[in-house]
């Protein structure tokens, strides 16, 4: 249990009333991790949710022959861990700290019980989680645009010879 004020800045709880935040804070504890600490493994049972205060955490997946590939890094203000919310409650990717990390860790077992008992809390927490998912999705889409790729890769060689003046970036 931590003071309700200490989680107020996180987007996840922005739409909640103070009383609802207090319930969430009741399931929370402050945690800190050293660098290179594995928080969970891909494929493992999903339990736990972290609101990151400081440091960087890598989401990764292992690709044969290439090792662990970092898909995305999360930092201060971000939410790590939403697979606990929906079946089959399995981590889709692994998570490992890249630097020393401080975070608020939510007891997702107790949180689920609270959500089952309080539909409004459930709605607001799900909404907060949806905001985080949407933000992550939009940023992933931006990377899919590959905007830094060379214009030469995107046009035929004939076009490329005439495109120089408009394509410095």
């Amino acid at each position: 249990m931590i003071p309700v004020e200490s989680i107020a800045a996180f987007t996840l709880v922005q739409t909640m009333t103070r009383a609802q935040r207090a319930k969430v804070a009741d399931t929370a504890q402050e945690v800190s991790f050293a660098a290179r600490k594995r928080l969970f493994e891909e494929g493992g049972h999903a339990s736990g949710c972290w609101l990151i205060r400081s440091g960087l955490i890598a989401l990764e997946s292992v690709v044969p022959g290439r090792g662990a590939i970092v898909l995305q890094t999360l930092g201060p203000g971000d939410v790590l861990g939403w697979s606990w919310l929906v079946p089959p409650n399995r981590w889709q990717f692994g998570a490992v700290t890249m630097t020393p990390v401080t975070a608020v860790e939510l007891d997702t077992g107790r949180l689920r019980t609270l959500m089952d008992a309080d539909p409004e809390l459930c709605c607001r927490l799900t909404r907060g989680m949806f905001d985080a998912v949407l933000d992550r999705l939009q940023n992933t889409r931006l990377r899919l645009l590959d905007v830094y790729g060379s214009p030469r890769d995107r046009v035929s060689s004939a076009d490329a010879s005439t495109s120089s003046s408009a394509s410095e970036r």
Partner: peptide, 18 residues
């Protein structure tokens, strides 16, 4: 990221958002 990159991975809007 390549194997030797140990910094942030993501579009510039992510650190900017934080």
């Amino acid at each position: 990221p390549a194997a030797d990159w140990d910094g942030p991975v993501g579009f510039v809007t992510e650190p900017l958002g934080r």
